[in-house]
């Protein structure tokens, strides 16, 4: 009886809890921001409003990943473990497409909304200097970032065809993602490398933010597009390879 009542309320409670969580993480970030900038005017060569814009992008991308990418990928790992992936594979549609849109977690929109507010505020403080070039750069880098993160997740999830207990690895992503709240350029060389090429936090957060505030150079933009294209292709191939392996095993 208790369970039934709880379930009935679960959705609404989930929303409230998510709102609280988003609010808290925003508050944490803002107070941290204030503490840091009470002691300095620049961080690396980033000004306070640049960092604030970066924070906005951090929340927006985090929200989008939590909304669109992560739920489906967690679901995929679970389906592989439980053997329920077979239902998806029997559908007359591209399996990668189906598993990628299997689930959304709508409450994560709160992060997106809060992030947009922070970003808007930061850009306003900077004097609304976002021109045509910056808008295009932001759109392109955000798309590439999304594609890279998606491919990264797809590769991890595909690994679950071989290693059943891999869901914990998503925790690593969360831990690393925290690092993206500050410019990747601040980190020592080896960590910069990890945060760029092993866990692609730099492409997901720093590069789009740089694009928006006009700090992006052509070289980085080119690299971004290149890596995105490569990741999409590699993850696609790896997925198909994993799928062949999976079907072979269960047959």
């Amino acid at each position: 009886m208790r369970i039934g009542i709880l379930n009935e309320l679960a959705y609404r409670m989930n929303f409230l809890v998510q709102l609280l969580q988003s609010g808290m993480s925003l508050l944490t970030a803002l107070v941290g921001f204030l503490v840091v900038f009470s002691h300095t005017e620049t961080l690396g060569d980033w000004r306070p409003n640049d960092i604030l814009a970066l924070l906005g992008v951090y929340l927006i991308v985090g929200g989008l990943v939590g909304l669109l990418i992560r739920p489906s990928m967690s679901r995929l790992m679970e389906d592989v473990r439980e053997g329920t992936l077979d239902y998806t594979l029997t559908k007359p549609e591209d399996a990668q497409f189906l598993v990628s849109i299997a689930q959304v977690r709508i409450w994560k929109l709160t992060d997106f909304v809060l992030g947009s507010i922070v970003l808007g505020y930061a850009l306003f403080n900077r004097g609304l200097d976002v021109g045509f070039d910056e808008t295009i750069a932001f759109a392109v880098t955000l798309t590439c970032g999304g594609a890279i993160v998606y491919s990264f997740f797809l590769i991890l999830s595909t690994l679950s065809f071989w290693f059943i207990r891999i869901d914990n690895i998503l925790v690593i992503f969360d831990a690393m993602y925290q690092a993206g709240r500050w410019p990747i350029g601040l980190y020592p060389y080896w960590l910069k490398f990890v945060l760029t090429f092993i866990v692609p936090i730099a492409f997901a957060i720093t590069v789009p933010a740089e694009g928006l505030i006009g700090r992006l150079d052509a070289q980085t933009l080119g690299l971004d597009i290149g890596v995105a294209t490569l990741m999409i292709a590699v993850s696609r191939l790896f997925w198909r390879y994993g799928l062949r392996n999976y079907s072979g095993a269960s047959a």
Binding site: M1, R2, I5, E8, L9, R12
Partner: peptide, 12 residues
């Protein structure tokens, strides 16, 4: 003692 609930967001 069990809570009694009505449907709808405002009631919740």
């Amino acid at each position: 003692v069990v809570p009694e609930r009505e449907a709808g967001l405002s009631a919740a």
